[in-house]
Design a protein around this nucleic acid. Structure first.
Length: 324
DNA sequence: CATCAGGGCCCTG
DNA sequence: CAGGGCCCTGAT
């Protein structure tokens, strides 16, 4: 493992997300698998980012409240960054951490709801957060496929170790992503040796497409849900389950649920119906009936809440559903 | 020891 | 449109 790249230069800025914005519930998603690419503590968040081919370290500090949100952001880099670079970076950060989306209507509408009310009380201002580039998200969804958490983590860390870099900033050493070309110039066998299995082909092809500039993430952000869905399904290795994640977590569409993965189905059956396993349609209908227009975001509140609980207390039945 | 499912997707018939 | 095959790993 090579020594970490030192990011000695620091640029600081302060930004104001659209309220309500819940710093901790947005910068940390306890349901996600652990990664060496970021660290969360209450009120503070560190992560790596590659922007215009430049490795960066980001540190977010909460200096506001839910209703008057304000975030201090340190951008760490090997050398001093130009004003142009920073001016370019800021809107991207605003997008990736979903500073712009206004969910006040959702919070107001359901704050007295029997199920959502108490959760909005706790997590008001929680939204979907991409944090990653589209390319990086696609890689993540591919290593999630047909794998347990442990295996996903293994694949992800193998990729970081082989193609990514370690960067050091603010006393933290974190893994940073690689540019798509890095994998595009690699081989399927190299990826298979990293234990990616049949996913090797998917990641290779998608890396090639991104490296050739065939996918314009910024243009996609301007398009509607159905068009994005159609475009993403064209990608080799991206099917309905991955698209379901993409539409919500990366493009921030908070409505309609179309597909529920098996483990989410089990956990939701338990939470909503106190039954071992109900049909997916029943869960979909529940959300459509009660939270039309906000189905996915509602799901998200229920989902992350149980994983927040899991951080601090042992939940026997849940442990049995999460295969490590 | 063998078998199998797991936070899917592709390909074939 | 259903179903087999695919990588790897740990559980049985």
């Amino acid at each position: 493992m090579p020594v970490a790249l030192e990011l000695r230069n620091k640029t600081t800025t302060e930004l104001e997300p659209v309220p309500p914005y819940n710093f901790d519930a947005n910068l940390h998603k306890p349901s996600h698998f652990p990664s060496s690419g970021d660290i969360w503590e209450k009120g503070m968040y560190w992560m790596t980012m590659v922007w215009n081919g430049q490795e960066l370290g980001l540190r977010f500090e909460n200096i506001g409240t839910i209703y008057k949100p304000r975030v201090r952001i340190n951008v760490y880099s090997p050398d001093k960054l130009s004003k142009e670079f920073i001016d370019n970076l800021i809107p991207e950060i605003r997008w990736r951490f979903n500073f712009e989306l206004d969910i006040s209507e959702f919070c107001d509408k359901f704050k007295s709801d029997k199920v959502l009310g108490p959760l909005i009380e706790k997590w008001e201002g929680m939204k979907p957060i991409a944090a990653s580039s589209l390319y990086e998200s696609l890689v993540i969804y591919i290593v999630l496929q047909n794998a347990t958490v442990k295996r996903t983590v293994q694949m992800m860390e193998n990729l970081y170790g082989n193609f990514g870099k370690k960067v050091k900033f603010d006393e933290k050493v974190l893994s940073s992503f690689w540019p798509p070309s890095q994998i595009a110039e690699s081989t399927e066998q190299t990826l298979r040796d990293l234990k990616l299995g049949y996913r090797a082909k998917y990641i290779l092809r998608i890396s090639e497409q991104f490296s050739k500039g065939e996918i314009d993430e910024f243009a996609l952000r301007q398009k509607g849900r159905d068009e994005i869905k159609k475009e993403m399904l064209k990608l080799y290795g991206i099917g309905p389950a991955s698209v379901e994640y993409l539409l919500f977590e990366d493009f921030y569409f908070c409505g309609s649920i179309e597909k529920i993965p098996p483990w989410e189905r089990k956990i939701m059956s338990r939470l909503l119906f106190n039954t071992e396993l109900v049909p997916s349609e029943k869960i979909v209908k529940f959300f459509r009936k009660n939270y039309a227009g906000w189905e996915k975001l509602s799901f998200h509140y229920i989902w992350e809440d149980i994983f927040w609980k899991r951080k601090y207390e042992h939940i026997e039945w849940l442990e049995n559903e999460i295969r490590l």
